[in-house]
Nucleic acid binder design. Structure first.
Lengths: 132, 132
DNA sequence: ATCATCTATATGTATTTTACACATAGATGA
DNA sequence: TCATCTATGTGTAAAATACATATAGATGAT
């Protein structure tokens, strides 16, 4: 068993600096950021997400809409139907102060994540001497 | 329905540059890298992993051991028991040529991931003008 | 006017990944 | 011989992702 052993102390989770503990959810901070620029809605945000999306060709609509809903549940954004303008009604989202705070927290987490990747790439480069 | 619509073309997955399509499994490239330096075993690799681990205080043993086994299943590493030396037997892992190729593929993916994070941080900085 | 297409939101669900608890056991030292 | 350290694993729930599919209003062409 691990209890009381040094491994227990050594390999136990402690509090994570990132709000949720999951740095992999890159869509969330991006959506928060876009909404910090101006109110918007899912379909439009999908296109904006495109510029950050490095693992998929196009962002997944399911992820976008579900993330927005979950952010709203957490009171990080608020939405209302927008029937003005052309096309079908849009659910228009706005960032709340809580959402802005979450964005700032994400920025911190992303900074440290970037540093980790840089560290990896530096070691990698050092070992495999890429010559241009 | 999506079939035939522009959305179908627009938001469909296409082939991902990263081997598995999942850039989030940072433990895997790290383990591959360490093994490219020298053969090693799970317990030791956990400690090495520490320097990259940005989301948790300490790496999860389960993840390390399972990743190593899965890499072995894919013939990216090979292992054998090492009973020499002090303490309990270790399962010693070595990188295969296939594993080395996988490491190089990961490096590419990590580069592009880093760029995405940088892009995010640049936009963020621009908008929230952090003064030092 | 109706049909295809585009815009827009949303749900269902399987798979993958992560988190964390727990099990086992050899070696070492008090 | 008992606690502790090293070492390798399994079990399982929760979270996240991938992808398919459903619905429906608006728009433009024929």
């Amino acid at each position: 068993m691990f209890e009381g052993s040094s491994l227990a102390k050594k390999y136990k989770l402690d509090q994570c600096e990132c709000p949720t503990g999951k740095m992999t959810r890159f869509a969330e901070p991006c959506l928060l950021f876009f909404l910090s620029q101006q109110p918007s809605y899912g379909y439009e945000l999908m296109d904006k997400l495109d510029q950050f999306d490095f693992q998929r060709a196009k962002p997944d609509p399911a992820m976008v809409y579900r993330t927005l809903r979950s952010l709203e549940k957490e009171k990080c954004v608020i939405s209302q139907w927008d029937t003005k303008g052309a096309g079908p009604a849009k659910r228009n989202y706005e960032l709340t102060p809580k959402g802005l705070a979450l964005l700032h927290a994400w920025a911190q987490g992303i900074r440290s994540r970037k540093q980790a990747l840089e560290k990896f790439l530096n070691l990698y480069k050092k070992q495999f001497k890429v010559k241009k």
